[in-house]
Nucleic acid binder design. Structure first.
Lengths: 355, 355
DNA sequence: CCACTTAAGCAACGCTGTTGCCAAAGTGCA
DNA sequence: TGCACTTTGGCAACAGCGTTGCTTAAGTGG
């Protein structure tokens, strides 16, 4: 709940309803009983009964069987109704567009991938995007989430200086696409969308960094359970941190950038060195933000997962041992075929669950 | 408002009351009218009237004159009553203890500095601390905030492995001192306390990094208006980021740490190089977290402010220019004689204002 | 002097979660 | 089989929150 604004009764009601929905989403197939929800929320069982009654009336929640009795009346299991709402996620990458349709529980119901030239201009891209949305479903949608390479402004829904495609600079993509589709549209960086999808899957814990090694090297940050975007959606510029003062020049104009060193090692086939360099950056991130976990993804990592996970893990383990702490776990982000497209759809679902 | 828990009517009431108090704190001497508060909170004027009536009954808020009329009845100015509550902040440094008494508005009412050997053991330090608290005031206190060098656990109130003083490891300082004083005690890292005091002063904007260059090099982070501590109060480990792969060895066992390079430059009198190295670390921080501002403090910076501010500013300006962005402002954190002690006291006041 | 504007309180209200009570639906022992 | 007990969950009454509608207070300006 926004701590900068006053809270009145409708806001309170929405907050508690969203909280209950989020708990039911997390519970998944297993569901949760009214008393379990009361325990988790700190509300009284009667309040939970009233809230879930409203949610059942709206069709978002349904009763689904009973728990085993523990000596008295068995608990009634409540579950989210996955089909109650749907959202579309679009992943605009440099050379292809991935579109997914997800239900309320976040499960991918339908998906499609088509070639796309991100440099072909906004009109062409919007045409393709609108076609893909229409092709996925004729059902009413909650909205459409769009994820693309940064930099961009999440709050305003406008890309800036997308690397290599100056024609996107300042184009009001969110509003233009929303008008065209007649639906709410949310825009975010690809790495943030991926981080959101990992956060909702629970694989990252309460706070983690998702390091994406593909064409470039970026990061999505989840701090305290929420995607951290910074003041201007600029957070997560991980690749252009200096790890070698006065080191080799980088395309960004700087020297000794992590991305340049890491990708140079990849280019010459020295994956161990690439992983070691990446591990140094990950260690900087872990120290600065005290996160619970580091997750790796992106095309380069997907192509050679083992050396990267092992190499980054080794660097973090060595530093943790010297400090006498437990090492921060390192894992592959492999929960979804396209975490970016999935996360894009979840940008739309997130407000329903108070996120 | 905690987004992980349900909200009932008393919680809602507390939230709105704290929000109004926070706005009045920010308004300071100038105060705010009921309608201005209504605008800022999004609540109706009548709701604000009820909330402020309760706060006036409790003695936390008082009417204080009128605004000029704008064509009708003039607005009544409301102000925080500074003397309504007090808190003590203790800054435990390696060789001295600073104690301050602050009122509800955050103003330092009394202060004292005494020598202290942090290595003399918990009993001796607690004895001195209790004496200083008693010497500052006989008034009832809201509580005592304690700030000391890390690492430590803010949530549990326990120091771990305070650099150079292994005898503190695991001593339950917060609870022991609370029992001895009969008052609530809050424990935090010195850099976090300083960051809190800067955040409340408004000098840092919504998100900033406070870089403290003293015996070591640490940082306090404020993200989205709140001090960011990370999962285990470990956030802000800024000095041991790698900025020189395979560089010179650091006391921490790593190589090419920012702290080692920066302090080595200071030791040989090359402040420009120290500032340049610090600037590289600051640039990494700014890129990763997209913060609004960088603030510098600590003994070393206080002794030679100009070269550090200039040097760090130059690095950030150069990088911003290459990226075509506005540079992130760099300034000296000079709002308080001891931001750490002041922030320690504000650790106690913060919950009153919903922070 | 009077019409108008703006601020702020009073009273009634709708809606929130809470409390007290009761019915439903199990378990376990005699 | 019967009965005491435990546990779940709904019904009804309730206290307390911010909101709405209206009135009163206290200014400005022609």
């Amino acid at each position: 709940m926004n701590s900068d604004t006053g809270v009145n009764l409708p806001a309170l009601r929405n907050h508690n309803a969203a909280l209950v929905l989020d708990l039911l989403r997390t519970a998944g197939e297993e569901g949760a009983s009214r008393l379990e929800l009361a325990d988790r929320t700190g509300l009284t069982p009667q309040a939970v009964s009233k809230i879930t009654a409203r949610l059942r009336e709206e069709g978002l929640v349904a009763e689904a069987g009973y728990r085993a009795s523990t000596g008295g009346k068995p608990r009634t299991v409540l579950r989210l109704v996955p089909g109650a709402a749907h959202a579309v996620g679009l992943h605009l990458d440099r050379d292809e567009l991935t579109a997914v349709l997800v239900d309320l529980s976040g499960v991918i119901v339908a998906a499609n991938v088509v070639p796309l030239d991100l440099g072909a201009g906004a009109e062409v891209v919007m045409e393709v995007a609108a076609g893909e949305v229409a092709a996925l479903t004729s059902r009413p949608l909650l909205g459409v989430g769009v994820a693309m390479p940064g930099p961009l402004d999440h709050a305003a829904g406008v890309p800036h200086r997308v690397t290599g495609f100056p024609e996107w600079d300042g184009f009001p993509l969110r509003d233009a696409l929303a008008r065209r589709l007649g639906l709410p549209v949310v825009l975010d960086k690809d790495t943030n969308a991926a981080a959101l999808s990992i956060a909702l899957s629970g694989a990252g814990g309460d706070s983690f960094g998702y390091l994406h090694l593909g064409t470039g090297l970026g990061a999505g940050l989840v701090l305290g359970g929420a995607v951290y975007r910074g003041a201007r959606t600029g957070a997560g510029e991980f690749g252009h941190q200096t790890v070698q003062l006065d080191g080799p020049a980088c395309g960004c104009g700087g020297r000794g950038c992590l991305e340049a060193l890491c990708l140079a090692a990849v280019a010459r086939g020295d994956l161990d060195e690439a992983a070691r360099v990446l591990g140094a950056g990950a260690a900087n991130l872990v120290k600065l933000l005290d996160i619970d976990r580091v997750l790796l993804g992106g095309r380069v990592v997907a192509g050679a997962a083992e050396p990267f996970v092992r190499g980054v893990r080794a660097v973090l383990a060595e530093r943790a041992e010297r400090a006498g702490e437990a090492p921060v776990p390192v894992a592959l982000a492999d929960g979804s075929p396209d975490p970016v497209a999935e996360g894009a759809a979840q940008l739309v679902l997130a407000p329903v669950f108070g996120r």
